[in-house]
Design a protein around this nucleic acid. Structure first.
Length: 299
DNA sequence: TTCCGGTGTC
DNA sequence: GACACCGGAA
């Protein structure tokens, strides 16, 4: 079997697998707008999809389109973002909504350059929106797709930081020529990476393309090898302190918006670090500092 | 305790 | 191209 036949065989197997195994997420199967797809992609960047679902449902009910989100208060946006993580992304998503409303009359643009020109939208999200929302033929490159394609076609783990040129060439080379098939390809490869071809413990027993997988044939060399990524500590870092402050603000009772200085000081013993974090949250636009030392979510 | 990730920034 | 950013799963 030559490369082309193998590629086509993998495609057919994955498409059949997708038909019966795709998770029934509310932004799939044409049930939402391109904007809804974009929101789901931004939320899914840092959080597993199953945990995103309830946030996405609430968010889209409150702000069904870009114009609606553009008009929300920052406090509302940060509160609705909840514990999704990376709260600055919630602000960027609102910036993005304002740009879509102002530059594109509330209609998401359909070109890569216009999409990546929006706040918070990089290569991955632009490609994902073009493929999943607009049905365009474009290679989507995220870590799941890199891991799956590298294993199946190269027989090796995808290691290291950003995608290298050779990796991008592979992803483009195996992308089906037909647009509709390319969309299913992107979705099914990504889904396989999320649910079967996982990083540490791939479920090769139930994998629909096991018979074509170069990685499995090679005896899964280097399975679960550490990706070279600088690891980030957590305990005691600014990251933890910032989260504690925002969480306290989100948890204020209805009708109360200001966190008093004395309450702030009870959140963290090291007041030097605490004040640094308050200042950085203020710089990020995530909180407002009041003259009396209190803070609140921006109105 | 360790590990995970897309974007923006420097 | 290194690093910060978050919270939760493993």
């Amino acid at each position: 079997m030559n490369d082309l036949q193998r590629n086509e065989s993998v495609r057919r197997k994955l498409a059949a697998w997708w038909d019966t195994n795709a998770r029934d997420l509310p932004w799939r199967f044409g049930r939402t707008t391109p904007w809804g797809v974009l929101v789901s992609e931004v939320m899914s960047q840092q959080t597993q999809m199953s945990r995103v679902v309830p946030y996405w449902e609430t968010w889209m009910r409150a702000w069904p389109d870009a114009a609606a989100l553009a008009d929300a208060t920052t406090a509302e946006v940060i509160t609705a973002w909840g514990r999704l993580g990376y709260p600055r992304r919630a602000l960027r998503l609102q910036d993005c909504a304002r740009a879509v409303r102002d530059r594109y009359a509330d209609e998401l643009p359909r070109t890569y350059d216009e999409l990546t020109g929006l706040p918070g939208i990089g290569d991955y999200t632009a490609s994902a929106v073009l493929s999943f929302a607009f049905g365009e033929r474009i290679a989507v490159i995220d870590t799941n797709i890199r891991r799956v394609l590298s294993r199946v076609f190269l027989g090796e783990e995808s290691l290291g930081g950003s995608a290298k040129p050779a990796e991008r060439e592979l992803v483009n080379r195996v992308l089906p020529a037909d647009a509709a098939r390319s969309v299913t390809w992107n979705q099914s490869v990504m889904e396989l990476g999320a649910t079967v071809c996982t990083a540490k413990r791939p479920l090769c027993d139930v994998c629909p393309v096991a018979e074509h997988c170069a990685f499995l044939a090679a005896g899964r060399p280097g399975l679960g090898e550490r990706r070279t990524r600088p690891r980030q500590r957590f305990a005691g870092t600014d990251r933890q302190v910032r989260g504690i402050v925002l969480d306290a603000l989100r948890g204020l009772p209805d009708g109360q918006s200001v966190l008093e200085r004395s309450r702030i000081e009870s959140l963290w013993a090291d007041h030097v670090q605490l004040d640094q974090c308050i200042a950085s949250l203020d710089e990020d636009g995530l909180i407002d500092m009041l003259p009396d030392g209190g803070v609140r979510l921006p109105q």
